[in-house]
Design a protein around this nucleic acid. Structure first.
Length: 305
DNA sequence: TACTGGCCTAGGTA
DNA sequence: ATACCTAGGCCAG
């Protein structure tokens, strides 16, 4: 497919931490979309894909979002414009709400690498096996499977204290008490409130689900990294006392969370969620960029003796 | 109403 | 190697 009409970067989109189940082999990215294993690769303005329909590709990678306009809208200052420039083509992925909800309940207080491991184990243990090109892949578990899962087995996937949250939320969803997909039709505040009724879901997880699976492009999840970014580059928008207090501690109280969230949604506007993704990824890559350089330097030292 | 600790675990780093 | 540190927070008190 010729995607010259859409600015898009497959690699950045799949690596920016919004989605955890894609793996690269050679040039190709493999992942389960729905109940099929798909593979894609990008070479400039050509996107190749197998075992997935063109319409699904467009939908999954939000190619309908007018990224140029979004960039113009959120590009309010030099800092975010630098992030936009470095990672241009990053798009939000349209995830299934159920999978997204469980994924981000699991994601609390975990690194991206650890989250990927957890979700992989969870899928291996409770998901449908799909063989593709001679290799085993696993669909994300259904609500029924996770509702029936023993806590002990959830823990064996590395979920730790998140196990009862996943179990209870799965039971609630399986019982059909609430239709998460329908929450997308509610206004942001109301949908967020509803999501927070699920065990293991607070403001941060709710914002992730709203942004990554319910089409609320103005949701702005605030994690530690985004918090640090805001404190460092947007501190002039807050009182000095607030900035100093937040700099001392690593966690956020709910009122502090809401304050940062409200600022960002107001400042970046209706596509604040895209701003969050670019800022988050920019910060993460800077961090790992430095870490990579340091370890390279160390390795050289070791090689030299 | 708002804040404070406690919490499972494992990947990454020194 | 091996001990630490930290990770896209939530919840009870």
């Amino acid at each position: 497919m010729d995607i010259s009409a859409y600015p898009f970067n497959l690699e950045v989109t799949l690596c920016c931490g919004q989605v955890f189940k894609w793996n690269k082999k050679g040039d190709w990215w493999y992942g389960v979309v729905g109940d099929r294993v798909s593979k894609l690769r990008q070479a400039g303005e050509i996107l190749e894909f197998h075992n997935i329909e063109e319409d699904s590709v467009k939908n999954y990678f939000s190619l309908d979002h007018d990224l140029t306009r979004i960039g113009a809208e959120i590009g309010r200052d030099d800092y975010i414009r630098a992030a936009l420039q470095d990672f241009w083509g990053l798009r939000l992925v349209r995830q299934q709400p159920w999978e997204c909800l469980i994924s981000f309940i699991c994601a609390t207080y975990k690194s991206v690498a650890a989250i990927r491991q957890m979700l992989h184990k969870l899928s291996m243990m409770f998901g449908q096996k799909i063989v593709f090109e001679g290799e085993d892949f696993y669909a994300f578990p259904t609500p029924e499977k996770l509702a029936d899962a023993r806590l002990q087995d959830l823990k064996s996937c590395g979920l730790g204290y998140r196990s009862p949250y996943v179990s209870k939320t799965a039971k609630k969803i399986f019982a059909g008490e609430c239709d998460i997909e329908a929450l997308g039709k509610l206004p942001y505040d109301q949908a967020k409130k509803e999501l927070c009724q699920y065990p293991g879901v607070g403001a941060k997880v709710a914002d992730c689900v709203l942004l990554f699976s319910l089409g609320k492009l103005d949701a702005f999840p605030v994690d530690v990294r985004v918090k640090r970014t805001i404190l460092r580059y947007y501190s002039e928008h807050f009182p000095e006392s607030f900035v100093k207090k937040l700099a001392r501690e690593d966690s956020l109280s709910s009122s502090e969370y809401e304050r940062i969230c409200r600022f960002a949604r107001d400042y970046f506007g209706k596509y604040a969620g895209y701003a969050q993704e670019y800022l988050y990824h920019y910060e993460r890559m800077k961090y790992y960029g430095i870490a990579a350089k340091v370890s390279t330097r160390l390795n050289r030292k070791i090689e030299k003796g």
